[in-house]
């Protein structure tokens, strides 16, 4: 388990670098490092389906970010500036709620069952019945496309809506000059 914690620490460090660095291109590369470390963490906790999706999505995300940054600007000008009065109020408010969230979250996480011991019976039922009832050897495909196919339909609808939104934002006709 030690390598899992090493990668989690790496994710934290890379995420902090991504928010604090002044060059946006370096921030995007740091964000990509976070994504690939998450993929490795998925492999370490034995979720290869998620790892494949995470890797390919991370590649496409970094491509989008780099393409957008290379067409606009490299420098993040908001970093290193002094905060105005209302911004200080916002930061204090955010810090208060973040600490509150951490305290409540700590109490909630303390009551969770141990890693690998689910409280619900339904997951073990899926694993027991998956191969026999659907005939699919990959239990993840059995769950997302047979037992819980309605959830997958919802996920596909979300992606469809996202594409429609992007196409509407980037349209040419009907825009005011």
């Amino acid at each position: 388990m030690i390598e899992l914690y090493l990668f989690l620490a790496f994710i934290l460090v890379a995420a902090i670098i991504a928010t604090e660095i002044k060059d946006l291109l370096a921030a995007v590369i740091s964000l990509g490092a976070v994504g690939f470390a998450v993929a490795i963490v998925f492999i370490l906790v034995q979720a290869p389906d998620l790892a494949i999706v995470q890797i390919v999505i991370e590649v496409l995300t970094v491509v989008i970010f780099v393409a957008v940054i290379s067409r606009t600007t490299h420098i993040d000008e908001t970093i290193g500036k002094k905060l105005a009065g209302t911004q200080i109020f916002a930061v204090v408010l955010f810090a208060f709620f973040a600490i509150l969230f951490l305290v409540v979250m700590g109490k909630a996480l303390y009551q969770l069952p141990a890693f690998g011991h689910p409280t619900m019976k339904i997951a073990s039922e899926y694993i027991r019945l998956g191969l026999g009832q659907t005939g699919g050897a990959n239990i993840v495909a059995d769950v997302i496309l047979d037992f819980r196919a309605l959830d997958t339909l919802g996920e596909a609808t979300v992606l469809f809506t996202a594409v429609i939104g992007v196409a509407a934002l980037m349209r040419k006709s009907g825009r005011k000059k």
């Binding site: 496409l60 989008i64 067409r71 996202a162 992007v166 349209r171 040419k172």
Partner: peptide
């Protein structure tokens, strides 16, 4: 669906020069 959708998103966001 996913392949065509993501390709369209990347084309619209990264390659197109409509708006600019």
């Amino acid at each position: 669906k996913v392949g065509a959708g993501l390709f369209s998103i990347i084309l619209a966001l990264a390659a197109m020069k409509y708006v600019i």
